[in-house]
């Protein structure tokens, strides 16, 4: 009979009207500035550069300016200039560092491919989303000083992932030390082929694609037989 469907519809809306006062499932709006969204751990927005310490972000950047991310970035929003000199990295090895590292967040599409391809765990995705600016170039083109954030911050926003990364880096470091020790012993005894690092296989993050770049990862690079000073004094 005419009107049955209409009455059914009215019943549904009435149910929602009443339900919105007592049923949280029917009243789903969050009032944003007061109620901040609960971001899931996986949430990603724009990339940032991981530095080991907060005191000296520029001195402890993990980035070695290998330029893989620059090459792989689909919208090509990353610009890197290698340094002329070398600075010791977290493991104490002298490394090239980025003299210029800039990301144009107006171009970035938050795809996180830079994170996936980075062999040094130097670039990660941030969760800061309220980044409006009135100046397109001054406000949205971020340089390395603005991009650098300490590892502690990384732990804060992606705890699980950061723990995995730290574990993996520690394993790589241990493997490197082991290799360095073996190499030192071998040099003392006789020339012997270098042992390939099993660091990546030992790493727990199986989902992470194996680094297969032209630039050698830290683990397989020959490391000076210097004990790694974890907390380093700030470099000039």
């Amino acid at each position: 009979m005419l009107g049955k469907g209409l009455l059914q519809g009215l019943a549904v809306t009435a149910k929602n009207l009443v339900g919105s006062y007592h049923d949280p499932a029917r009243y789903v709006t969050q009032e944003y500035p007061e109620v901040q969204p609960k971001l899931p751990e996986a949430y990603r927005n724009f990339p940032f550069l991981v530095s080991e310490t907060a005191d000296d972000p520029m001195g402890t950047l993990r980035c070695v300016a290998c330029q893989i991310c620059e090459k792989e970035c689909p919208p090509q929003c990353i610009y890197i200039e290698k340094s002329k000199d070398k600075k010791p990295d977290a493991t104490g090895k002298a490394q090239i560092y980025p003299a210029v590292f800039a990301i144009d967040t107006a171009v970035c599409m938050s795809c996180q491919i830079c994170v996936e391809v980075c062999p040094f765990d130097a670039i990660k995705m941030d969760q800061e989303f309220a980044i409006a600016a009135t100046d397109r170039f001054g406000g949205l083109l971020l340089n390395r000083e603005q991009l650098a954030k300490p590892n502690a911050y990384y732990h804060q926003i992606h705890p699980t992932e950061a723990a995995e990364v730290d574990e993996r880096l520690a394993a790589e470091r241990r493997a490197a030390e082991e290799k360095a020790r073996l190499a030192a012993a071998a040099k003392a005894a006789a020339p012997k082929p270098a042992v390939p690092a099993a660091a990546a296989a030992a790493a727990p993050g199986a989902a992470r694609p194996a680094p297969a770049g032209s630039t050698a990862p830290a683990a397989s690079a020959p490391v000076d037989p210097v004990p790694p000073p974890a907390p380093r004094p700030p470099s000039p």
Binding site: T13, N16, L17, S20, Y21, R26, Y27, V28, T29, E31
Partner: peptide
């Protein structure tokens, strides 16, 4: 307000 409530949102507040 009522439209809002029917649509699971608060309406102007």
């Amino acid at each position: 307000k009522i439209l809002g409530r029917i649509q699971n949102r608060p309406g102007p507040n």
